[in-house]
């Protein structure tokens, strides 16, 4: 398999949501001396971009999206240690801390958004569920986050999103950390009401909203 075929196969295995093939090709690429950065950007990322387009067009559905993100993640797990070693490592496009707010233990939506962001090349720290405003502030600061993503699935926990924004402001972080909110009851109107920087309807749209908010192309 020459390099072109390998990159095409990488793209295809993400489209197919084939986790094992994604990891196998990543290992193969290392043995063949393909720079990991090329495998990611010219191979796997092409696949996840295509998946995003097809999902938005309504040609792919959620189970397929989840499987594609899993395949992407499996490949990145193999390649990441090598990318960090390489001097010419992929530049970090954005560091994101994400979690479901205090009092709320809904996990699925937030985790899908986290995987899709990872699959699109962001460095993501997932704090899990039931995360206090103080923990968001502490981890955002430690991780050097450019953006914090707050999930709330209950109308009773939506106000905690506002509390987190307030806590970030009080900690003096709000100027350098953007805030995105999401979750079934959350709307664009709610996002602007509480002073968030953005809101996305689903995981794929979250990627373009994050890019927009962070001023990325």
């Amino acid at each position: 398999m020459d390099r072109g075929d390998l990159l095409t196969a990488m793209k295809q295995c993400v489209l197919d949501g084939d986790v094992e093939e994604a990891a196998r090709l990543a290992e193969l690429s290392l043995r063949q001396g393909v720079p990991p950065i090329d495998s990611v950007e010219k191979g796997y990322v092409q696949g996840i971009n295509e998946v995003g387009r097809l999902f938005e067009a309504g040609d792919l559905f959620l189970p397929e999206l989840v499987a594609s993100a899993d395949a992407m993640k499996a490949a990145l797990e193999v390649l990441k240690p090598w990318m960090e070693k390489a001097e010419t490592g992929r530049k970090v496009i954005g560091r994101i801390v994400i979690g479901t707010v205090k009092g709320d233990i809904h996990d699925i939506g937030k985790s899908i958004v986290a995987s899709i962001l990872v699959a699109n090349g962001f460095d993501v720290l997932d704090l899990g569920v039931d995360v206090s405003p103080a923990a968001f502030v502490e981890k955002a600061s430690e991780f050097g986050a450019d953006l914090v993503g707050l999930s709330a699935l209950l109308t009773t926990t939506m106000p905690v999103q506002r509390e987190v924004i307030k806590a970030l402001r009080e900690a003096g972080l709000r100027d350098r950390v953007k805030v995105l909110v999401g979750g079934a009851p959350v709307t664009g109107r709610w996002a602007s009401e509480i002073g968030a920087d953005g809101y996305a309807e689903d995981a794929i749209r979250a990627v373009s909203v994050v890019r927009g908010v962070l001023g990325l192309p």
Partner: peptide, 8 residues
């Protein structure tokens, strides 16, 4: 009930 799409 949770979505089949996120866990078969």
């Amino acid at each position: 009930v949770q979505p089949l799409a996120t866990g078969t």
